[in-house]
Amino acid sequence: MRAGAPRRRWPPALKAGLAITLAWVALALLADVIAPFPPNDHNMQAILHPPGRPHWLGTDNFGRDVLSRILHGARVDLLMGVVGVLIPFVIGVTLGAVAGYFGGIVDAILMRILDVVLAFPWLVLLMAIIVVLGPGLKSFFIALALVGWVSYARLVRAQVLVIRSADYVAAGRSLGYSTGRILWRHVLPNAIAPAIVFAMSDVVLVILAGSAISYLGFGVQPPTAEWGLMISEGQSFIFTAWWMTTFPGIALVLLALGFSLLADGLAEYLGVRE
């Protein structure tokens, strides 16, 4: 990674990513208003109704409206992505900055822990922790807090190692600034760009992991509308009701695309090379 001078103009990928992401946020916030039906209302008159009027994306085996469930599901999947990245981001950036700046024994221990966590296949370790904690969204977040911080710690540490010997840090020291002030106000702001870019692509990974874990049955529990769970509920009806699995998946791909573009655009804008 190399940090260069930021460019002024917004790259097209950044604009497109921001547009898609904000559109999803708006849909999620307005779900109560724009969803044509309540997400959990059973309708025995319209079971497995194919896409068409008045159920534009069809209904499921309980007669629940797929479009309405996708809109409400956007809340859960966005929440998974944002909270699931924010907690590891804060922990990882803090630990990485401290380890990189002070070095020594703290740094050595942190790097060994990092090696161990990275040795486990990510999703497998998440699942193994969720087994201990029991299924549910809360367990998913705790598992992510335990596992997800390592990437941020590594990125920030690598930057801090370079920056701590910069002239402006030496200048700060000679002016008698406290270590805390140098670290948080001078070193960290210059070290955080790669971590922010990674956070955007990490949202994609976390949403995919969260929906996969819900699909497998260990994450969000029924009857909550969540895209991975909807896909798993539709799997039994794949021969008769293709819309139950197809549309929630398209929603997932579109949300992920928004954050992937955001990551690409931000990398270009901030001059971060992976």
């Binding site: 692509s201 996969a212 699909y215 497998l216 991975g228 699995t245 929630p248 992937s260």
Partner: peptide, 9 residues
Amino acid sequence: IGLGFPSFW
């Protein structure tokens, strides 16, 4: 787009 493909889907 492929980076965001949910493999199960």
